[in-house]
Design a protein around this nucleic acid. Structure first.
Lengths: 357, 357
DNA sequence: CTGAAAGCGCTTACAG
DNA sequence: CTGAAAGCGCTTACAG
């Protein structure tokens, strides 16, 4: 229709025009349709003639047009932003989770907004409410322990904000859950230690405010019981998933007589604390003490000897959760519930051996 | 003006209204001014009568009104989003940096969008261009080594996107820089080792693609030279800031005869690699080998013995950079250049001692 | 299957 | 110091 629109290098006006992003109006004009039709193509409406759709799409690609998420968001009354809300203290976990979410977002026009928070802060809920309401989030990914807070979830429903909860057990409708079955991973650790011949086995659990702490402890205890090994009260210590709490618990545990020959820590950070105390006391790992962690974080490989740990595929969990948020379900028989599950796996390294005594 | 507007618990209509966010129009109506005036108050325009401003602000607070960032962004042709663009491989660094940026953003209506990337990817620059153009970012924080890429910066200028570069040396106008002076930190490490009496001192540097790798090496070499100690070529190894590269370099270094009595690693990750090899070879740290890292990350405390390391206040750097992006300068004599600087500091722990031989 | 009008919640450009 | 009109780039609601 319009002749000679291709920019020439000597044409300063055309240069300026090309710097400006093209809009839905430009596309409509070039395709000779209304902007509403372009909008329909963008939003993949089925009510567009095949031929029209192809023509519009061709022009969109040619011009390199991308709709403005802010404008779309304003009209949709909902932004193209995903929030990651977390209070997990482990950087490795946070970064892996972010990576997984971004994996699923690649190629979309969505952005990832991060929002760390502290459940103990008095403004925790109101901060979060402000964040979600202000940003008009499309949806959020909730990781433990935030994912276990029903007040949080109630608020999200109020704002009609989509969400997916990552947690160690089923807490909600299957379509909103990624379940990590921490108890099964802990059970694997228990069976392995029992098979090695350990009987004086200790556990350092996470804080009661994390559901995973209960699950890991329960899975461990129950599997031990199956093997006829009892987790004695003095060998059953509470930590809070931090390195320091692992040190404190290990000091108590290793002062006991007789002391445990194996310790299963609720996560790798606390296992690192056990290592520190063992080194201080001159206790050899694994000859005199077997240690197992949980998470299989980067730390596991940096410890000496390398740590046996239960691996959770954190990055994949983030991707799974985000696919779910976008309504992209893994292909299954449609009859099956749309639950997503993840199975932890014991990675055996050099911190575990048969007891020497 | 309007009587009885306070909602009563039994009034379902009022309840419904209260669920809907109020807009600039509601405030204008309640304050008996035009929405343009409300807009002026929001944007802190000086051209509003004191009395009007107070009245409008009172109503804004009363109603709990917050302007919609998407709508503002559309009108401003610029979003209320800050991007953090990074390719740093250390999770601890990434999380600390994010925390620092969020510290500075607290109380604002801005959001933090994360964008990890790989400089080696063929789509690196075009991905980034898409990200910045699509999201119409208010500004970005660039961390090493992305912050050292002039093509990246050129692109940002093209889009008139504000930016602050965090880097180990001055690369740009002072108003856009947070300089970390890595060379000074490395020099401290050198002086300390020389003082302890070491002469066979080795260095494992980061990858040449990171400016900090050069700076740390340079600072270390020069300070050593001042003390009359030469960094021999066989003791001068290149790594790439990863744990594995630290292992590889340490294997070579510790096979040398005579081997070094001290190793300064370009970061803690590589120092962790040195520990692993030393343990394997039965070399005692610090009696037979002193080790110093850089970053003072969480890993430094989890290693045994605890690692002497050069600390960079990463979280503060993030806050500093973001304050700068917002034009919030530290108060100084206005004549002084608006450069932000950070001085690394050697944290002495238990991985360093006088050489035994 | 397609389009003209009105609107999302703000701001810019202009006028007074 | 204040406001009415037009516009940012899209979509909804309606009509045909």
């Amino acid at each position: 229709m319009i002749a000679g629109v291709s920019p020439t290098p000597t044409d300063p006006i055309e240069k300026d025009r090309s710097r400006k992003r093209s809009t839905i109006n430009d596309i409509a004009r070039l395709a000779n349709v209304s902007k509403k039709t372009v909008s329909r193509v963008i939003n993949e409406s089925p009510f567009v003639k095949e031929e029209t759709r192809l023509r519009v799409n061709a022009i969109i690609r040619e011009v390199g047009f991308e709709p403005d998420p802010q404008a779309r968001g304003l009209a949709f009354r909902r932004s193209f932003l995903i929030g990651m809300i977390y209070d997990n203290p482990t950087p490795q976990y946070v970064v892996n989770m972010q990576q997984g979410i971004l994996d699923a977002m690649r190629g979309t026009s969505y952005g990832l907004l991060v929002h760390p928070c502290e459940r103990t802060s008095p403004t925790y809920l109101s901060d979060l409410r402000g964040f979600i309401e202000r940003q008009k989030l499309f949806g959020v990914i909730l990781t433990p322990s935030i994912s276990e807070d029903e007040r949080m979830v109630k608020m999200l429903r109020e704002f009609e904000c989509h969400y997916v909860r990552i947690a160690s057990v089923m807490l909600d409708k299957p379509s909103t859950m990624v379940v990590t079955h921490d108890a099964d991973g802990a059970a694997e650790a228990a069976h392995y230690l029992a098979e090695l011949g350990h009987e004086r086995i200790a556990h350092i659990s996470g804080p009661p405010s994390f559901r995973s702490a209960h699950e890991r402890r329960r899975g461990f205890r129950e599997a031990l019981a199956q093997r006829g090994v009892k987790l004695r009260p003095s060998f059953d210590r509470e930590g809070n998933y931090t390195f320091d709490s692992g040190i404190a618990a290990a000091r108590e545990l290793l002062a006991l007589k007789p002391r445990p020959t194996a310790i299963f820590a609720g996560n790798d950070e606390m296992a690192a604390g056990v290592y520190k105390v063992a080194h201080e006391l001159g206790i050899d790992i694994p000859r005199q003490l077997s240690v197992i962690g949980f998470d299989d974080s980067a730390t596991a490989l940096r410890l000496w000897p390398v740590l046996t740990s239960v691996r959770l595929p954190v990055r994949e969990m983030g991707k799974l959760a985000t696919d779910k948020l976008f309504g992209r379900q893994a292909k299954k028989k449609p009859a099956e519930p749309e639950l997503s599950e993840v199975i932890p796996k014991l990675i055996i390294r050099e911190s575990t051996a048969a007891p020497s005594e």
